[in-house]
């Protein structure tokens, strides 16, 4: 079997695959970035270690998705590959790093939820809980994808996701059912994050195509997710939630909050200051 036949060869399929891989990778990278901001500043040394570990998992998964996208792109004629990715600095070679560092905010496809600031420990825990629950149900579906690369990454990652989900659920319960202050803080975090939860379940066309899913599957995902959230909230003595009509969105189209620009300015400054240097 030649390398060409290992990858989806139809143009449109390739296009959707690249977009979907970037979406997944960008979510992971920005989640990892935010979690890593806690490193050295956590409330309890053991929890600092746990959260750094989660940051590492996020970065690791991001690398898997970027590398897969880069592999597909490297096998194409260069102009064609460059046309598929919205680079604002043309890379010498398309790699995981050029995908992460040479695209500007408008090319990033992550959900708005993941780029929001960490806030306090309650907000960070709730964010990881929301995101991990979403990823858990999504990766269950992606494991069955006929694209064996994608299915493989999902299968490998889901074990990590399961742990993140368990760890963050336990924190939501602890904070909800802890002291008055912790309950107030988690309720406040809920207010901050809830308007961003809906976006997780509004798939872009490239997601549906690449994931080989009908919209109804995302509807089911949304229902499962809400059920999980309410199950944990009940244990946390927090009020049950339902989706409202309106939610924030735009991440998948590259229209982000004001926060992403600052994240990228920090994350990308070295590769952009020293173009084509090796690190």
């Amino acid at each position: 079997m030649n390398a060409e036949s290992m990858i989806p060869n139809h143009n449109a399929v390739t296009d959707t695959t690249i977009n979907a891989m970037l979406q997944l990778a960008d979510d992971n990278l920005i989640m990892g970035h935010r979690c890593s901001e806690w490193c050295g500043h956590g409330p309890i040394l053991e929890q600092d270690i746990a959260l750094t570990n989660i940051a590492l998992d996020f970065v690791g998964q991001a690398r898997n998705f970027y590398q897969y996208a880069a592999t597909i792109l490297q096998q194409m004629p260069n102009e064609k590959a460059l046309a598929l990715v919205d680079f604002d600095m043309v890379p010498e070679q398309i790699t995981e790093d050029s995908l992460a560092c040479l695209r500007d905010a408008g090319a990033f496809k992550n959900h708005l939820l993941v780029e929001l600031p960490n806030g306090d420990w309650a907000q960070t825990m709730l964010k990881i809980f929301f995101f991990s629950a979403y990823r858990f149900y999504l990766f269950q579906l992606l494991q069955k994808n006929t694209d064996t690369q994608l299915a493989g990454i999902a299968e490998k990652s889901i074990k990590e996701v399961q742990y993140h989900l368990k760890w963050s659920s336990e924190w939501v319960i602890r904070l909800g059912d802890g002291t008055d202050e912790s309950k107030n803080r988690i309720l406040k975090a809920m207010d901050t994050l809830w308007p961003y939860a809906g976006e997780l379940f509004g798939p872009a066309k490239y997601e549906l195509e690449c994931y080989q899913l009908e919209s109804i599957a995302f509807e089911t995902l949304r229902v499962n997710w809400l059920e999980k959230v309410n199950q944990i909230f009940e244990m946390a003595t927090l009020p049950a939630q339902s989706f409202t009509q309106w939610h924030q969105s735009g991440g998948k189209q590259g229209i982000h909050t004001e926060y992403l620009g600052y994240i990228l300015a920090e994350m990308q400054f070295l590769p952009r200051t020293f173009p084509n240097a090796t690190w």
Partner: peptide, 22 residues
């Protein structure tokens, strides 16, 4: 950590700082 110049270096540095906490 947030400014590491490549994803590989970022992962190594994260793991290193985590080791120090350990």
């Amino acid at each position: 950590i947030t400014r590491a110049p490549s994803l590989r270096r970022k992962a190594i540095l994260l793991a290193k700082v985590q080791d120090e906490a350990g």
